[in-house]
């Protein structure tokens, strides 16, 4: 039976922290992509033009309803065959961002729908241009409602990053796996990875709750 070895933990920690840094980067960039792209979907789906809403809703539904891992494999193994090659981390960021954008789009939609009709009417009564109505009236009010929900998706994405190990991104799980494969000792690396995840995600979710209380007054 294995016994826990703190010395072993000390040896592997630098590599795991390197992996953690990759994990954090993937989450941050992936989130930014999903925030921006989700807004694009949400606004496109509100367009009066069927020719725009129709293809967008098909793409969004398709991405939302297929597994992230399959999408990552597609981006990583299939696209290069078509001459599109990205480094693993970039591929991971695109995959996470794209996948989660279909959920943030829904969050934005709900946030936008939650802005009372009277706000649109007041903007019309003042003849505010459409762009200005969106940017100064509707979106700022929608954002207040969506920030806490988006935060939850960031945490969910953070916890999905180990999937990137499957496309050779050197995230925490990838590091732990390489170490263990060499030492045949899985207990410490995998346990430390779990601990590092909770050390980050739990305080983040507490922070989010505090933010939510501030925003939704």
């Amino acid at each position: 039976m294995n016994t826990w070895s703190w010395g072993y933990v000390g040896d592997i920690l630098p590599d795991l922290l390197k992996g953690l840094w990759i994990t954090v980067q993937a989450t941050l960039y992936g989130s930014l992509v999903s925030f921006a792209l989700g807004l694009v979907w949400a606004l496109a789906l509100r367009s009066p033009s069927r020719r725009l809403t129709w293809p967008v809703s098909i793409v969004v539904e398709f991405i939302r309803n297929t597994p992230l891992l399959v999408q990552l494999f597609f981006l990583f193994f299939v696209l290069p065959g078509w001459g599109l090659t990205f480094p693993p981390l970039a591929t991971g960021v695109i995959g996470l961002g794209l996948h989660y954008s279909t959920f943030t789009a829904e969050v934005y939609r709900a946030g936008i729908d939650g802005v009372p009709a009277g706000q649109w009417e007041a903007a019309t009564a003042l003849s505010l241009p459409r762009r200005r109505t969106w940017s100064a009236v509707i979106l700022p009010q929608a954002f207040r409602r969506v920030v806490p929900v988006l935060g939850n998706y960031v945490i969910a994405m953070f916890k999905d990053t180990p999937m990137l190990a499957a496309i050779t991104v050197g995230d925490m799980l990838f590091q732990a796996n390489s170490i263990s494969a060499a030492t045949f000792d899985y207990m410490e690396p995998i346990t430390v990875v779990g601990v590092l995840f909770i050390v980050i995600s739990y305080p983040t979710s507490l922070l989010l709750r505090a933010l939510e209380r501030r925003l939704v007054r």
Binding site: G118, Q119, E121, A122, A125, A136, Q141, R144
Partner: peptide
């Protein structure tokens, strides 16, 4: 308007 409809974010 009856319900004012001021912009609460401003």
């Amino acid at each position: 308007f009856q319900q004012f409809n001021l912009f609460p974010n401003m």
